[in-house]
């Protein structure tokens, strides 16, 4: 098992608020890593740091043992480190087809059929503007876009947010197949059975610090023993 991403002593935040207070994180290659925690624990912030949307105030980030702390979002995306944000993850004023084309062309692949094979429902919506899709379809489109980019590392924020359990289950299952194909997956979510079931390694964040890291199986007894 080798490390894909290593985040060391990361401090980051928005304006005057520091959200991550010196977080350490190791993302193993080709596995599914889950970042769990309640709202405000720093999960999304961590993903934004990994994707380069939020600069580190201190600490460092390495990717395949190269330091990328100051690399731009665009360069990370081009090299295959791709984030699917929790909201505003599709271009609402563009059609579904254009949404797919944009990312396929930008990453050097031009064929959008793999996305349509993975999510047949999108085929019927190709000429529709992404802003008119339902929440679940929008989520699918966002994931389909990420699929077309064939990323090395896929960061997914709140996959299940606002989705029915059935749709969420489908998407989680799909994510599992992506990971089986060798892509490193990092998943930020609240405590859900699906996330725990999918993950190879779990980090629990609490107020911008790591309060647990290990096997998902270890987590359940620890959590229930924790006094509230």
């Amino acid at each position: 098992m080798s490390a894909e991403l290593i985040l060391t002593n990361a401090r980051a935040g928005y304006r005057t608020i520091e959200v991550l207070h010196g977080l350490d994180l190791i993302i193993p290659t080709g596995k599914v890593t889950a970042l769990l925690g309640v709202n405000g624990a720093g999960k999304s912030t961590t993903l934004r740091v990994l994707a380069g949307l939020l600069p580190l105030r201190s600490g460092s980030l390495t990717w395949q043992s190269k330091t990328i702390t100051t690399m731009s979002t665009l360069d990370r995306a081009r090299r295959g480190l791709m984030l699917v944000p929790d909201e505003r993850a599709v271009f609402a004023t563009l059609t579904v087809r254009e949404n797919l084309q944009i990312i396929a062309e930008a990453t050097g692949h031009h064929d959008i059929t793999p996305a349509l094979e993975a999510f047949p429902r999108l085929r019927e919506r190709l000429t529709q503007r992404a802003g008119t899709l339902s929440g679940g379809e929008r989520r699918m489109l966002a994931l389909a876009r990420a699929l077309l980019a064939r990323p090395r590392v896929l960061l997914v924020d709140e996959l299940s947010l606002g989705l029915s359990p059935k749709v969420a289950g489908e998407l989680f299952a799909w994510l599992g197949t992506v990971a089986d194909g060798g892509t490193t997956v990092v998943l930020a979510d609240q405590y859900t059975e699906e996330a725990l079931g999918l993950a190879d390694i779990v980090y629990v964040l609490h107020r911008g610090e790591c309060s647990f890291v290990g096997d998902p199986a270890e987590l359940k007894p620890t959590v229930s023993a924790e006094p509230v």
């Binding site: 994707a51 995306a77 081009r78 984030l83 944000p85 505003r88 944009i102 980019a149």
Partner: peptide
């Protein structure tokens, strides 16, 4: 922001 995330 999303454009940059999409390698545009």
């Amino acid at each position: 922001q999303l454009a940059e995330l999409s390698a545009v």
